[in-house]
């Protein structure tokens, strides 16, 4: 069975951040493979290693993002497609989903996997938008996948429990990072990744027909989250500090 995994390069949220002239500026150039996408790749690899099949990673992004596609190949994906953008587009999830839908239009596959959200913007929209555009059955926030014959069973994290869902093929699943621990590429994997096939498509050659109307949301500005007033640290005898804070929660904060 063929698995496509949609991946994205994101800024590392742990890297120092600044807002300069209304733009987000990252001190160091620290871009990484979105953690939720890494889990999607890992899961596709685990399934195809056990049952046979192939894994292709698809990335939309500027030239520089190719390093992230290489990482997916180094983890073990068989091949990759890079849809190259200029990096200056102000596309939103809808526009990206439409680009992916154009790419997948004439493809054959068992399942498309996506991260459930991206670590930088946390919108979590592209996956189910893509499913709807391709008219595929889908499941989101998967924490487990199992191939049973010709279809997969998804364990989905719902609000209060886990839902076991049978999903027909072809279908789409968005994956949580609670699903697995993505492997770190081995040296051998990194060497092999250099010889793996990567198809590079300029966005303009894809004819996705992205118009202004396809970007339906805009970011207007950024601001730093206001910091909390620093509180007080209590050190010393456990009994004493425990009593003291318990009292204050009652008398000062009125939350007991």
């Amino acid at each position: 069975m063929k698995f496509y995994v949609c991946i994205k390069q994101v800024p590392d949220v742990n890297a120092p951040l600044q807002i300069k002239d209304g733009q987000l500026v990252q001190d160091a150039d620290r871009n990484i493979l979105n953690a939720y996408d890494a889990s999607s790749i890992e899961e596709a690899l685990v399934i195809t290693e056990a049952h046979g099949g192939e894994v292709e990673a698809v990335l939309i992004g500027p030239e520089k993002a190719k390093e992230t596609l290489r990482k997916a190949l180094a983890m073990g994906a068989d091949s990759g497609t890079h849809i190259v953008t200029s990096g200056d587009e102000n596309y939103d999830s809808f526009a990206y989903a439409k680009i992916l839908a154009t790419f997948f239009k004439d493809k054959e596959y068992g399942y498309i996997l996506c991260g459930k959200q991206s670590q930088d913007t946390d919108s979590g929209l592209t996956g189910s938008m893509l499913a709807e555009m391709l008219n595929l059955p889908y499941s989101t926030n998967a924490v487990g996948l199992e191939l049973q014959g010709d279809h997969i069973v998804v364990k989905r994290q719902g609000d209060t429990g886990q839902e076991m869902i049978e999903l027909a093929s072809p279908g789409l699943v968005t994956c949580s990072n609670d699903m697995n621990d993505p492997r770190i590429p081995s040296l051998k994997g990194i060497m092999q990744s250099k010889r793996k096939p990567v198809d590079t498509i300029a966005l303009s050659d894809l004819n996705a027909g992205i118009s202004e109307a396809d970007t339906k949301t805009n970011i207007l500005s950024f601001e730093e989250k206001p910091e909390r007033e620093p509180g007080k640290k209590y050190e010393g005898e456990p009994e004493e500090i425990a009593r003291q804070v318990a009292q204050l929660l009652d008398t000062e904060e009125n939350v007991i």
Partner: peptide, 28 residues
């Protein structure tokens, strides 16, 4: 976590929690 905590108790949770629970019970 102490950077955002209003009340930070520095200590071993196994030693801090029992008297903390005791005191809260009394208040309740």
């Amino acid at each position: 976590i102490f950077d955002i905590a209003d009340y930070g108790l520095v200590g071993d949770l196994y030693k801090v929690l029992p008297p903390f629970i005791e005191e809260l019970k009394k208040i309740k």
